[in-house]
Design a protein around this nucleic acid. Structure first.
Lengths: 352, 352
DNA sequence: CTGTTAGCGCGTTCAC
DNA sequence: GTGAACGCGCTAACAG
């Protein structure tokens, strides 16, 4: 009624932009035809299609996603919740995820949990309210409510940054525990016996926990009781790494090697050692975890575990979009995290 | 008709989740009341409100954003297009932006342009199709089509990372040129005369251009003709900084100071100098730009320009949300970028 | 304060 | 191959 009035009176809809119907009028076809050229161009005769496309251009028509989502029950949006965006290793994953999704015509709705499962749950609900077609989660530990919401909304999801073939949830990632074990063993093999660790904060963080546990287990297996004051936990900041290293260097039994839960902490430890005039690796060895670009470039180059951050983003996007389109796809993908032996590790100093 | 059938036959909508109408039935009220409880709770009597809220909980109701957006003409989504997410300084801005937006009940649709204005335009269109309520852009140089689309859709936007009081567009940022000028002058004042630069890639990047121009202008004003082979451009990677520094150190007239367009390049330069056994700053001074956390922690600590990345994210979110809600708010905010004099700068070596 | 109802803009049967 | 018409789930007048 109102709509007719508007047209009869030729009240141009100056306030709002062109709709599908406007394009249809302009091209002298029905809205159905315009919709087809947009979504299933093959079903429309060439000449008509060209005419419609011209009108779309002329009017500067931009589809109305909400209306489209309402009618088609697909939003073309995928969501991702990461602990924090402000962390180089996640942002590299996010970047690749976003680019890959964009190639498929999907946009990325991004949220962060601040390493809190409760916030993660809330952000999940917020994303679900925006009718995301799929969701990417980091790690395998989540509030049960997250999974039940996802299930009742029938939204496909995938856990990245972890690999667990026994999980009931799709996951794309690597074995956090194994790689940490390997790098610890490497230090042991070099002859280190005084090994300290600066772990990431393990609270509600299964990746940090796995890394810490792996180190502890490996040390224990080697008959080295890990002492409390040589195992520290710090948040993800270079300054925290420095601070922790400072504390470790004051210990009576100074460590000959420091294992860090991530590269940022490792860089902090390295800088602190350098500031104190210690030679790395001849005085002390340092290893990180993540494989940031800078880790390979710092002097001396950091020995670390390189994780497939970019690949996880790409594969997660592909998994979700395939699943959304009901195309079968492998729901568990194991990627490799590789030990990169560089210049911050060597045999322990003789004096020990 | 179909809807009535479904209800008459008591076919439970098991495939889909609860709708507003289901909640209304469950609570024995009209859909309008439920909608009010959700959007303007004050308008509903206490007892009724409680009843409705209980039903919402019982049914696990989650609002349908697309439907809400269609009816209310508000999506509660704001968009942002950054050159790349995978860049610590942007991700810190994005993180603060996302958090602030989330506090207001808004979610963040994120896209990246890869430093291409053409891609930026395409991503802008994609975001507009998702009916974003506001958009954040980095820099002041954009395809005219971006602004015209924004205008025709009446979507508020703001340019961050730049400040220009004469711009016709809202902007929140700092003066890229000025700070670069200051840091160059600082080096000049220390006595440096052989000053090289490793700039960021300036193509379609007004921030990198401004920084480069500021350095060149300042050097020229000081009577130092900037030579071509001491001004390099490199992409945003530590390895590129190393590579460029390597090249500069081979020059006949070795620079006594290197100005870098950003901290990542500066760290690369620093690491290369260290690898070559040069003492920083006694042999050579290095300055960066951005103020990454690591710049303050590296040994020696990097002299740089600290830019208000977090603040820009927060203020941009606030600006957009105020504007969306038709609350007047200052559309140009000048923030300060501060010179942080640290340990990578000193007088040039005497031998020169 | 609460209910009724008419669209929001589009995709999608179903006839033609 | 194309058009008409319905309804996706919700908000926003407007009554009452």
């Amino acid at each position: 009624m109102v709509k007719q009035l508007r047209e009869i009176l030729k009240i141009t809809r100056q306030n709002s932009s062109a709709r599908l119907e406007d394009v249809a009028h302009h091209a002298g076809v029905s809205t159905a035809t315009v919709s087809r050229v947009l979504n299933q161009p093959d079903l429309v005769r060439r000449t008509l299609r060209d005419r419609v496309e011209a009108s779309i251009n002329d009017l500067g028509y931009v589809a109305h996603g909400a209306a489209r989502a309402l009618a088609s029950r697909r939003s073309r949006i995928i969501g991702a919740i990461v602990p924090t965006i402000d962390n180089a290793i996640f942002s590299s994953s996010i970047q690749s995820l976003q680019k890959r999704a964009s190639e498929f015509g999907y946009t990325l709705l991004l949220a962060s949990s601040d390493y809190s499962l409760d916030r993660e749950k809330k952000e999940c609900q917020a994303l679900l309210e925006q009718n995301i077609d799929g969701l990417i989660l980091v790690g395998e530990e989540h509030d049960p409510a997250v999974f039940s919401m996802l299930k009742s909304k029938q939204v496909p999801y995938v856990n990245i940054w972890c690999y667990n073939e026994d999980s009931e949830h799709p996951n794309i990632g690597f074995d956090n525990y194994l790689a940490a074990k390997q790098i610890t063993q490497y230090l042991l093999d070099l002859g280190h016996r005084q090994i300290a660790m600066i772990a990431g904060v393990v609270t509600e963080n299964d990746r940090a926990s796995a890394r810490l546990n792996a180190v502890m287990d490996t040390l224990n297996d080697a008959g080295l009781a890990a002492e409390n004051d040589s195992i520290l936990q710090r948040d993800y900041q270079v300054s925290s790494g420095r601070d922790a290293a400072k504390q470790l260097l004051k210990l009576d039994k100074q460590p000959t090697a420091i294992i860090c839960g991530n590269d940022v902490l490792a860089l902090g430890a390295l800088f602190e050692c350098q500031a104190q005039g210690l030679k790395v690796p001849s005085d002390i060895s340092i290893v990180g975890y993540d494989g940031l670009e800078i880790a390979a470039q710092v002097t001396p180059a950091l020995t670390t575990v390189v994780i497939p951050s970019i690949q996880m983003g790409v594969l997660a996007a592909e998994f979700l979009i395939s699943t959304i389109n009901k195309k079968p796809i492998q729901s568990k993908i194991k990627l490799e995290a590789e030990l990169a032996i560089r210049e911050t590790t060597s045999k322990p100093p003789r004096t020990n």
